[in-house]
């Protein structure tokens, strides 16, 4: 009988035997499969761009075809600020000086270092100054953090001014970019105000007197300042004029510190971000970067066209 033969061969019987048998079989099967799968995994490691993980993040094949190059710009949220292609001469440093991009990059650096500084800073009289000392002496890399934030702010102002100079010298404010120039002017004012409101925050002599000098001018605002032309006639006093509104008091004190803090850390960065969004959007919608465009001769000057402008603009640099 076969059963008896099995028994005779010393095979285990009963529940234990069945379990043992099944596990053994499974193990043998698994061994083959695992080795197989392991090899597959190793092979996939060599081509990470074929994995599901990679493809879920980057949706385009990575190869050297023009189509993929274009798509890798267009399908990435950070890159899609750019067009897929640009005027061949626009990458010359001598054209843009890279100053707009550097202003933006410095804005990002300032945002990051600024948020880190906020972890250590209380906008209250007495505590504020101590927090700066704490940053200098006890916080790991605290001094470096503060230095980067301050020098970055100075650099950004210089970058923005040079950006404006190059936009002017290339005539890039001309049709159709008039409005984006205005957005830029607002961005420059916001950049200066960001720096100025930050100057008070260490609550030291330097910031205190600079902001005192600065806001004293607000006293002299025509109509709205108590020392300005026609201010007194309109009922302005040191306790209800624009300077009072800016400082939250008649002197630079605790309220002024809090107001500077809120303008500096929340309000102006938010407003500036919105304007930067508009600025970049308009650079694209106005036909991309303005040049280097083919030169136009005096003899080719035409009468100014009246009426609406084309909504879709041809990229500049092509004729």
């Amino acid at each position: 009988m076969p059963e008896e033969n099995d028994k005779g061969a010393g095979k285990p019987t009963g529940l234990l035997g069945t379990v043992k048998e099944t596990v053994k079989g499974d193990l043998a099967g698994l061994k083959g499969v695992l080795v197989e799968k392991g090899k597959e995994e190793l092979a996939a490691l060599k081509e990470p761009e074929k994995t599901q993980l990679f493809r879920s993040i980057f949706r385009v094949k990575r190869d050297e075809t023009p189509r993929s190059r274009a798509l890798s710009v267009l399908t990435n949220v950070f890159f899609h600020l750019h067009p897929a292609k640009i005027n061949r001469d626009a990458v010359r440093y001598s054209y843009t000086w890279g100053m707009g991009g550097m202003s933006f990059y410095l804005f990002l650096v300032l945002t990051i270092t600024g948020v880190l500084l906020m972890f250590y800073y209380h906008p209250t009289k007495g505590q504020a100054y101590r927090d700066i000392l704490y940053l200098h002496h006890d916080v790991p890399f605290g001094q470096l953090l503060r230095n980067m934030h301050r020098w970055g702010a100075h650099l950004m102002i210089i970058a923005v001014w040079l950006h404006m100079l190059r936009v002017f010298l290339t005539g890039s404010y001309k049709r159709p970019r008039e409005f984006n120039w205005c957005v830029g002017v607002i961005l420059m004012v916001l950049t200066l105000l960001l720096s100025f409101t930050g100057y008070l925050l260490p609550d030291d002599q330097l910031g205190f007197w600079a902001v005192t000098v600065g806001t004293n001018m607000a006293r002299a605002t025509p109509l709205l300042g108590h020392e300005g032309p026609f201010g007194a006639q309109l009922g302005m006093t040191a306790f209800n004029d624009v300077r009072f509104a800016l400082l939250g008091g008649s002197i630079v004190d605790a309220n002024a510190l809090l107001r500077a803090y809120i303008w500096h850390c929340i309000a102006i960065p938010l407003i500036a971000s919105v304007f930067m969004g508009v600025h970049f959007w308009r650079v694209r919608k106005d036909g991309g970067i303005s040049g280097p465009a083919p030169v136009m001769l005096e003899s080719e000057m035409k009468e100014e066209k009246k009426g609406p402008r084309p909504v879709i603009l041809r990229p500049s640099g092509t004729r």
Binding site: L133, D204, W209, V213
Partner: peptide, 29 residues
């Protein structure tokens, strides 16, 4: 920016004191 920040420290004067005028008292540059 790193090199600049490592070599030069951001200034910090005495705590703000409304009774002690800085002379010259200058706005930010």
């Amino acid at each position: 920016l790193m090199v600049w920040s490592i070599t030069l420290n951001a200034p910090l004067e005495e705590p703000a004191n409304p009774n002690l005028t800085m002379n010259p008292s200058k706005a930010p540059w």
